[in-house]
Design a protein around this nucleic acid. Structure first.
Length: 921
RNA sequence: GGGUGUUUAGCUCAGUUGGGAGAGCGACGGCCUUACAAGCCGUAGGUCGCAGGUUCGAGCCCUGCAACACCCA
């Protein structure tokens, strides 16, 4: 083995080997399944993916080693809108448009792009070590999957759960399509509030003598589509006018004045203009009052022919300006106020969204939502952490019908056909639709142009990937899947819809648990994004990147190029030397260590560095073991010593804790346990305890054999325990170690996960080594604080203590002397005077190092004074507690007893410390 | 405006049923000790957001407040 760990030397070849040997496909055993949240087929890996995939792979590897037939289902998503946008942008850059190309040519082009760039994400997933079953890979637009989507649509339609209707939808004028509520981001923006005068008809006047009403709006251009003015029914100012009429300026239409509780009388003048075709609230009000809707906008959000000629063809913002000017010229603009408003923008395009009346396809939600709520209520599906269940319920309880049609080309074309009479015929294909409708072959049918939104197809993900609608063997074995691992940002988009659709179409839940993890943020807690230029590419952490390359990557192709200098400056500040290469295992271990209870994680590169060091530590521990194990010595029957028994007992606790942590998705605890055990116990203590036994020629062969066996056994066990988190380094080391243990098998992946029960609990050995550690630590403390050179051997005197201390001292003397670098260890009688010494206490045992010219007296006095002070404070606290009558009367006897013992111990120590301090002055 | 979450060491975070405040990183001091300087040994550092309450006892339970974050309107 090389002297230090080099991830690049092992990662790619090990992965290729695993994949070629088909180790990622489920073997025998009870099925266990996780489906990958399908990444965008043309996308690339970001930190969120890397985080999520680390957690999933850890679970899959863990269950695989426990003997489950573990399937991590691979697949990608066609990602309708974003993929179409991407290819369209390429087209535009080449001076062409989608319309010029036509539907078929355009789709062909997207497929070509998919073939060219679709392998990108797959290659990156492999670099993360993800043990996905590539042989079962699916794509939401592949043939079988497309059939499943059609099947789902047809069945829902047959059940009356899908309908086409004219409804107000969120319209993205930049993309020319409807989008769902979830795809609209409401953000506060600076705008204006225009107060406009609408004259009253028939010479009417308000109670305060005005001949007009004042209405306020943030969107003056919509006034062209106004069909009413509304006031609150209890508003005294306008009560007399309800039922009368006002005249719409610029248009001339007469508007009824209606009363509705929706109006807030305290806002503005208390009068509201009603534009049913362009506002959700107004639309609802219009339905209540049976008002007409007048659409005044085109698909591109320009004014259409329903408006007066003067405004036709104007873009909505140009029209706004013109209307404001015209009203002003007529003296009808009462006031303009600065105003903060919630502006709806499309999450893909960034364009201001228009509510717009269009014909769309919808899924009726009410009957789907109820069973989906029940499935979580009665515990068949469990969210981890549980708190997210409330979020889920709140959202599910007031859910609108789901608009599933998109005016796009890239996606599943809706399987509906229009007859010459406009009648709609749904079927699995055109012939099926014709058959169902009883139409003759010569009746011309025209297929719906719209496609289904992406989430419709991905809501079928758990079962469509397993062969639905067929009842395949895979489906039987792996569905319902065991856990869905996902971010809280897509609970609504995806999780809720999967639950609804899966229950409806298969009668099964899609998964038993939903593990919701947090989002990955940068060191400042900011969301990582291309725009902000604060993103990290997981592969750059694995492979490293120079500052120049990083700067280039972060500032190239910015949507807001003026931010480039600021981004460059921040980047230089944070990574003055670029990013070193940490390797996949260190990155994965970081993600696990940061993944606590579903909260967002601030990604901290210094953690990754620490875990890279941990990898190196493991590597070198293995080197040490391999250097010190000789097969011939191990043939002697081993007789385990205290240290051997101790480390195995500790390993037992570690395995139990790690297993419990993984079973409850506490990846942070899992990582901490492994780190703590490997470094603080196995390396810091066990290897050091092993050295004297291994290197002392007088050691009995049976003892040496025991140490060598234990070194190997515990290392093997540690590697297997850590494998799910850090697959590469554990495999590389294991291949060196396993043959020495006589273990057969090509890969650690296929080894059984350690069981705590297989290891002996040994409280006696644990107590003995704990004592040893205390004594050694006390001596090291004296060395460090009093300035005794590490190379300087010391004499150790022991005094006081109990019979137990004498036993333990006898049992561990050789080890203590070695670890504390003590030339001798001598007992003094309890009442014997000690030479001037530095003192440490282990319980009531006094551990002393005679001064004899090697100790800085002042330093020792300072150290002792500090110890006395602390002890005094402790004693005072305990004393006060035990003098408190209420405590004695009310606390459980064992707690009181514990406090008494502590007081007694503290008192003894206090005496020893004070006496020692006295003897030095 | 409604809801959820967060607030613990300089930084990032643990803290399971209420019973002596923890880790990593960073800081400081000392070491090239024959696996590892990506290392070893030692040390310092906290009014657990604020104010009340329950309790013999509160980081943990209850109430109120504040700040921040996110979701929804």
């Amino acid at each position: 083995m090389e002297a230090s760990f080099n991830p690049h030397a092992i990662e790619r070849s090990l992965y290729a080997e695993w994949e070629a040997a088909n180790y990622f496909a489920p073997q025998g055993g009870e099925g266990y399944c996780i489906v990958i949240p399908p990444p965008n087929v043309t996308g690339s890996l970001h930190m969120g993916h890397a985080f999520q995939h680390t957690l999933m792979d850890t679970l899959i590897r863990f269950q695989r080693m426990r003997g489950r037939g573990a399937l991590w289902q691979m697949g990608t998503d066609h990602a309708g809108i974003s993929t179409q946008m991407l290819v369209e942008r390429q087209l535009n850059a080449a001076g062409k448009t989608r319309a010029e190309l036509g539907r078929e040519k355009f789709i062909e082009r997207v497929w070509r792009w998919k073939r060219e760039s679709g392998g990108n994400i797959s290659a990156q997933l492999r670099r993360m070590g993800s043990s996905l079953d590539w042989s079962r890979e699916r794509f939401t637009l592949d043939e079988g999957y497309a059939q499943a989507v059609v099947e789902a649509f047809v069945r829902l339609h047959e059940d009356g759960l899908i309908y086409r209707g004219q409804r107000l939808v969120n319209w993205d004028p930049a993309l020319g399509t409807a989008i769902s509520d979830l795809e609209v981001i409401n953000k506060e923006e600076e705008g204006s509030l225009w107060h406009m005068r609408y004259p009253l008809c028939d010479g009417l006047k308000t109670p305060d003598g005005q001949d007009h009403l004042v209405v306020a709006t943030t969107r003056p251009e919509t006034m062209l589509g106004d069909t009413a003015v509304a006031v609150h029914p209890d508003d005294e100012r306008y009560r007399a006018l309800v039922g009368k009429r006002a005249r719409l300026p610029l248009v001339g239409r007469e508007l009824p004045i209606v009363a509705d509780r929706y109006v807030d009388p305290a806002f503005g003048s208390g009068c509201v203009k009603i534009t049913p075709a362009h506002d959700f609230n107004d639309n609802a009000l219009a339905t209540r009052h049976d008002l007409p809707s007048i659409n005044v906008l085109t698909e591109a959000a320009a004014i259409n022919d329903n408006a007066p000629a003067a405004y036709r063809g104007l873009d909505r913002f140009a029209a706004r300006q013109r209307i404001v000017d015209d009203l002003n010229a007529l003296g009808l603009l009462a006031e303009v106020q600065a105003h903060k408003l919630m502006a709806p923008r499309g999450d893909r395009s960034g364009a201001v969204i228009e509510p717009r009346l269009t014909n769309q396809w919808f899924v009726k939600i009410a009957t789907l939502a109820a069973p989906a709520i029940r499935a979580v209520q009665d515990g068949r599906i469990e969210f981890v952490p549980k708190g997210y269940e409330n979020t889920y319920f709140a959202w599910m309880r007031d859910l609108q019908d789901w608009c599933i049609s998109r005016q796009q080309w890239w996606g599943h074309r809706i399987p509906a056909w229009y007859g010459p009479d406009g009648a709609i015929h749904v079927g699995r294909d055109e012939a099926d639709a014709r058959r169902r409708a009883g139409l003759a072959g010569d009746v011309a049918l025209r297929q719906e142009e719209d496609v289904l939104e992406t989430w419709f197809s991905s809501s079928l993900w758990t079962f469509a990937t397993l062969g639905w609608p067929e009842q395949t063997a895979d489906r039987k074995r792996f569905h319902p899947t065991d856990v869905l691992v996902t971010g809280h940002d897509i609970i609504f988009f995806w999780v809720a819809r999967m639950i609804m659709m899966t229950l409806k179409l298969t009668g099964e839940i899609p998964f038993r648990q939903v593990y919701v993890h947090g989002l990955v943020r940068d060191a400042e807690g900011q969301k990582m994004s291309k725009t902000k230029g604060n993103g990290l590419d997981p592969l750059d952490l694995i492979d490293g990147i120079s500052l120049d390359d990083l700067l280039e990557k972060r500032t190239a192709n910015l949507t807001q190029p003026h931010l480039a200098p600021a981004i460059a400056k921040a980047t230089e500040g944070e990574f003055p030397n670029g990013i070193p290469s940490y390797g996949t295992d260190a990155l994965r271990f970081t993600f696990c260590a940061l993944a606590s209870t579903g909260r967002d994680v601030r990604f901290d590169l210094s953690r990754t560095e620490g875990y890279r060091n941990f990898c190196n530590k493991l590597w070198n521990a293995a080197r040490f073991v391999l250097m010190n194990v000789q097969l011939e010595a191990m043939s002697t029957a081993p007789v385990p010593g205290l240290a051997d028994r101790w480390i195995k007992s500790r390993a037992r606790s570690m395995v139990a804790a790690v297993t419990a942590a993984l079973e409850t998705y506490r990846f942070d605890r899992c990582a901490n346990q492994i780190h703590e055990f490997a470094w603080r116990e196995y390396c810091d203590w066990y290897l050091e305890l092993a050295k004297p036994v291994l290197w002392d020629e007088r050691t009995a062969p049976s003892q040496r054999s025991a140490v060598q066996h234990t070194l190997l056994q515990v290392l093997d066990l540690l590697l297997r325990t850590a494998h799910p988190l850090m697959p590469f380094i554990t495999e590389a080391i294991w291949r060196e170690v396993a043959p020495l243990l006589g273990t057969q098998g090509p890969s650690i992946m296929l080894q059984p996960y350690p069981l705590a029960e297989d290891l002996p609990a040994d409280p006696e050995a644990e107590a003995a080594i704990d004592w040893l550690k205390s004594v050694v630590t006390a001596l090291r403390n004296i060395r460090g604080e009093t300035g005794i050179k590490p190379s300087q051997e010391v004499r150790v005197l022991l005094r006081g203590g109990a019979a137990r201390d004498r036993e333990l001292a006898a049992a561990t003397e050789a080890l203590v002397r070695r670890l504390a670098k003590a030339e001798s260890m001598q007992w003094l009688d309890a009442d014997a005077a000690a030479p001037p010494s530095a003192l440490g206490l282990v319980g009531s045992l006094e551990v002393m190092v005679p001064l004899a010219g090697l100790i800085d007296l002042d330093a020792e006095r300072r150290r002792l004074s500090k110890a006395v002070e602390r002890k005094q404070a402790e004693l005072r606290r305990l004393q006060a507690k035990l003098e408190n009558r209420k405590f004695i009367d009310n606390a459980p006897p064992e707690v009181v007893e514990k406090e008494r013992t502590k007081r007694a111990e503290a008192a003894v120590r206090m005496v020893a410390l004070t006496a020692q301090l006295g003897s030095l002055s």
